[in-house]
Design a protein around this nucleic acid. Structure first.
Length: 501
RNA sequence: GGCCCCAUCGUCUAGCGGUUAGGACAUCGGCCUCUCAAGCCGGGAACAGGGGUUCAAGUCCCCUUGGGGUCACCA
């Protein structure tokens, strides 16, 4: 009874101090660990947090979980920042580094120790490992046996290394309420005196997360489903501090085509399928950030039948209620379709700007001038990615060095050379700035030479100009290539045919 | 293995007791057409299985099966 009222007043005091959690504005966070590039599943978590914050006029915080100094790198932090910026998911606060907050954890440990809610544990790691192995072999759930729990805190065990453990209370709630998953039972058997501070003095993840989330007054913890099992232990820690317990929303994980959680170790496999665990890869593969955000949001969340959402729509429509409970499988085909949809909506100038970088991968150095805009315009309905667009635009920059053999067989039958010659001779009389002018000329040529069949002229011509029989409108191609280049390519084809025949 | 979660077309999903089970991607036809696309029209394709509850079950309950997650001095 006494304990209960103390707890209640503790919560009240804290809540007052914080301005009251009830009518407090939403504060969410994304907390990746900087151990490599940003994981695509992490991106989805970031998006949901970001969108939730916007929807509720809340604050989106970025926190870097770098207590594992072995694996954390500055480079990884930079990559995370870059990726979030690319996706336009910039945090309102942060990045906050856990490694800068070590003293805060220390204070919290002192509090816990003082309250007898934690104790030092001198058990040797080897011994604990042995006990765990034994539990496993006996098919029991391993649980710390509490050897050091009963130790007198004032006794001096000397200079031996120790960890700090949480003194798990006997009483615990029988469930917690998850905004996505619903009621999740809490299994007391799984609650044990877990480690808060390692023997090297660094805080463990479960400990630092709680302290940080509480101190940053996070109201809603939206994170991956793989954290559900930790949640009960974390809730118990909030209670030990008399901190208000935030709302939890565990979102289903993103799976690979094989149906299991995406793994960074399987990049090779994924590559062949057109997917990746790394966000940056999607950028390299020519995806638009808005398309990726649209796809990732819609993977696991829905708004009736709508597929395409502007950022504004996402920010007003996103809600946790319509997040599904089952994992989503990454589907590159749908991602491509969404990307293609976004490409069509993107201005020629923006596409040209994107193209510049991808063309340089092909050794082509150009600027996003008017010509490149026209090239982009000619390709935008035919490209699912910017990479594909760049690939398809190559013929604009390089005259064909060879012609597709099958196409030659089909379209450059004897007599083809005469058609090409005729076209070339007509060129000086055409207005190349107007596609209609070219179209008119070729049509009249068709009625003269091929019984009005434009295809019989266009295809041999296309082969001469592009080296293949697939390209944007031939009139558009000629117009973009210009009189001089078109003439040159025609002459070259004629030469080729002259040699052959 | 213990614990937890999940289950509608191949994939993402709508559905919140009464539907010809809808949409999107993919796929397959057709139209359009200078090729390829885009666009338009159309087809095939799903409630994992079994018990209940109910006048009525994709929708509620239980079991089975299947899938996933998690069990550290990692995060």
């Amino acid at each position: 009874m006494l304990a209960r009222s103390q707890t209640m007043s503790g919560i009240f005091a804290r809540a007052t101090q914080l301005g009251g959690l009830m009518n407090q504005s939403v504060r969410v966070r994304f907390a990746p660990s900087p151990t490599g590039y940003l994981h695509i599943g992490g991106v989805r978590t970031a998006i949901y947090n970001y969108l939730f914050a916007r929807r509720h006029q809340g604050v989106f915080i970025l926190r870097i979980e770098d207590t594992d100094r072995q694996r954390s790198t500055r480079e990884a932090v930079r990559q995370i920042l870059d990726s979030l910026e690319w996706l336009d998911l910039k945090p309102d606060e942060g990045p906050i580094l856990q490694s800068d907050r070590l003293s805060i954890y220390q204070e919290h440990i002192d509090t816990l120790l003082k309250r007898n809610s934690a104790y030092r544990c001198y058990c040797a790691p080897e011994l604990l490992e042995k006990k765990r192995q034994q539990a496993i072999s006996e098919k029991r759930t391993y649980k710390y046996d509490g050897t050091c729990r009963k130790r007198d805190p004032n006794e001096d065990p000397g200079e031996r290394p120790y960890t700090v453990r949480f003194r798990m209370p006997d009483q615990h709630p029988d469930h917690f309420n998850d905004l996505i998953m619903g009621a999740i039972p809490i299994d007391g058997e799984r609650l044990d005196d877990w480690i808060l501070v390692r023997s090297d003095g660094t805080p463990t993840y479960n400990f630092s997360v709680v302290v940080d989330d509480a101190c940053m007054r996070i109201t809603h913890i939206i994170r991956g489903n793989d954290h559900v099992a930790n949640t009960p232990s974390q809730i118990m820690l909030y209670r030990a501090f008399d901190y208000p317990v935030p709302q939890f929303a565990h979102m289903p994980l993103t799976h690979g085509p094989d149906g299991s959680k995406l793994s960074k170790r399987r990049e090779e496999e994924y590559r062949k399928l057109g997917i990746s665990v790394s966000v940056q890869e999607y950028r390299k593969m020519g995806y638009l950030p808005q398309a990726l955000v649209n796809y990732l949001t819609r993977l696991g969340w829905s708004h009736k039948d709508q597929e395409i959402f502007s950022r504004e729509e996402l920010q007003t429509k996103f809600d946790l209620e319509h997040v599904g409970k089952s994992p989503g499988v990454l589907d590159p085909a749908k991602l491509k379709w969404i990307n293609a949809t976004y490409i069509k909506q993107t201005s020629d100038q923006d596409l040209a700007n994107l193209l510049v970088a991808h063309l340089s991968d092909h050794g082509i150095r150009v600027e996003a001038n008017e010509r490149l805009c026209r090239i982009a315009a000619s390709l935008k309905i035919r490209s699912e990615t910017i990479v594909e667009m760049a690939q398809k635009s190559l013929f604009y920059f390089h005259a064909p060095t060879e012609y597709d053999p099958n196409s030659i067989k089909k379209w450059w039958k004897p007599g083809a050379k005469e058609i090409l010659t005729k076209i070339r001779e007509d060129i000086p009389s055409l207005d190349f700035t107007r596609e209609a002018s070219i179209e008119k000329a070729l049509e009249s040529l068709a009625s003269e030479l091929t019984e009005g069949k434009l295809g019989k002229i266009a295809q041999p011509l296309r082969l001469a100009l592009t080296g293949t029989t697939v390209s944007p409108s031939i009139f558009e191609v000629m117009s973009i290539l210009g009189i001089e280049e078109t003439t040159k390519r025609l002459e070259r084809a004629e030469q080729y045919l002259a040699q052959r025949d």
